[in-house]
Design a protein around this nucleic acid. Structure first.
Length: 213
DNA sequence: GCACTAACCTATTCAGTCG
DNA sequence: CGACTGAATAGGTTAGTGC
């Protein structure tokens, strides 16, 4: 996949018998490629490769994406194409293959992202439910001067912790307490009814639920 | 170390094909 | 005729070789 990682072999200069190809590679025939024997009437026309040529090239590509010089020359003779054309075809084919790979990777990542998003949505809903259960269980705290004031989530947790410390420690935990306990972590319930990332015991002792018990 | 060379890559151009 | 495909080019990078 990463062609930069493979060592690039040193390719010696073409043999004298291949000087024709060498000339071609060095742009003796600039602009659009031409068969050297062609006259001006036939030049600068891009010709599509025939089905047979593409089939053989494809077979070779499936075998090995890299084109070594021997195989290039062999294919060149077999397909009656210039070695440069063989090399260009392999280059373009690798580029197409890489694009396909990128497309595939994108689809895989997108699928993973969608799954995680769904999971996140479920968890958010669960947090809202738990938050509502907490509010029902102890929605208000007593105001020092009498009356009631609404409590923030952090305060609820702290308040419940104090209540538990001051009450019978052997009593059975409520359902909510069990859920929170099993999670091994505490949540900070924000004012806007959302919950921030969980904080595990020991990291934020002032809001941890049961560590004081 | 540096110039040279040949391979590779990405981005782009452009001709051929197709709906 | 415009969109798409693929052959070919341009320009940059990398690595081996020779001096």
């Amino acid at each position: 996949m990463d062609w930069h990682q493979s060592a690039k072999p040193f390719i010696p200069l073409p043999q004298p018998s291949l000087s024709l190809f060498h000339n071609y590679n060095n742009n003796t025939y600039p602009e659009k490629w031409t068969v050297p024997e062609m006259d001006n009437g036939n030049k600068d026309k891009k010709k599509r490769l025939t089905r047979n040529q593409v089939e053989l090239l494809e077979m070779n590509f499936q075998e090995k994406m890299k084109l070594d010089p021997e195989r290039k020359m062999q294919l060149s003779m077999e397909l009656s194409l210039q070695p440069r054309q063989i090399a260009v075809w392999f280059q373009n084919r690798r580029a197409r293959w890489k694009n396909k790979q990128l497309e595939h990777s994108y689809n895989v990542l997108k699928h993973q992202y969608d799954e995680i998003s769904k999971e996140n949505e479920k968890l958010q809903e669960e947090v809202i439910k738990l938050n509502a259960m907490l509010s029902k269980e102890q929605p208000f705290k007593t105001h020092p001067f009498g009356g009631y004031t609404e409590m923030r989530g952090e305060e609820i947790v702290e308040s419940m912790s104090k209540t538990l410390r001051g009450s019978n420690k052997t009593r059975k935990k409520s359902n909510i307490e069990n859920v929170v306990d099993q999670s091994l972590c505490s949540f900070i319930v924000e004012d806007n009814n959302t919950v921030s990332l969980p904080h595990c015991h020991g990291l934020l002792p002032h809001i941890s639920y049961y560590e004081q018990i």
